[in-house]
Amino acid sequence: MENRQPSDAEWGPRSAARWPRRVSPARAAVLDLLKGQTEPLSQAALVEVSGLHANTVREHLDGLRRRGLVRRLRAESSGRGRPAWLYEATDNESTASEYGGLAAALAAAITHTSERPAEIAAAAGEEWGHELARDRGAVPAVPTTARRHVIGLLDELGFEPEAGGSPDQVRLTECPLLEAAHRYPEVVCAVHLGIVRGALEEYGADPTGARLVPFAEPGACRLVVPPIEEPGA
């Protein structure tokens, strides 16, 4: 049988189904509860229907809101005191489409107005990476776990990371902003690498050596994150 060479369109990752793609099974269960309701629920009501502790429900709701999967709105006032917050699931597919369009527009603006678009994009990505890691409760104390935490973050964001051909390589098999990355790779891919570097720093690790090779092979981009050791190890 003749060996078929991959076409240009096959190089690089697939488009992620949504942004962000993954949440934990526990948060997915809370999200499914909200999706099954005909009207928004208060946190107290969600505690009652889920059987979870109030602190656990609040943590899941905060995480789902950060990922754009749940919106919060005020209940109508019914007397003295501040009205309760109500929560409902969002239309994530619509949100993903709007997010991709916004990302492409911002990437175009940076490309056309800046003399150093990649540098600016990387700096923005690093700031975003710090924020995302803090949202996940990053503790900058154990550098040896930083790499694992950051790969977990990429999984949550929809990159579907897989082990690469060597211990320092990770294959990113999906991209939540694939269309924008094809049009403006210098900017979008720099943002993604910046996220990795910022998150590594937030977890207490030196990001030196981390690099991203966009559309490096059929089915994936290649992320290089050298194994991280404790100082003096």
Rank of each mutant, 00 (worst) to 15 (best):
T90G: 03
S77E: 09
L41I: 04
E39G: 14
G81V: 15
S42C: 02
E59Q: 15
G63V: 03
A44V: 10
A54I: 10
L86A: 06
R65C: 02
A84P: 05
E59Y: 15
H60W: 12
E39N: 10
R80N: 15
E88K: 03
Q37H: 05
A75V: 07
R66L: 10
E39W: 07
N92H: 12
D62T: 14
L64R: 00
Y87S: 04
S77H: 09
E39M: 09
L52A: 14
G68R: 05
G63K: 03
G63A: 04
V47I: 02
L34H: 00
S77Y: 07
E98D: 11
L52G: 09
R74W: 11
G100W: 08
L64F: 01
D91W: 06
H53W: 08
E48A: 08
Y99R: 11
S42W: 03
G51I: 03
V49P: 05
P40R: 04
Q37S: 08
R58N: 13
N55R: 15
S94R: 13
S50E: 10
T95A: 12
A89I: 04
S42L: 01
E76I: 06
S50W: 07
A96P: 09
A54P: 13
P40A: 03
G79L: 04
R80H: 15
G36D: 08
T95P: 00
L69E: 01
G51K: 02
A45N: 01
T90I: 01
R71W: 14
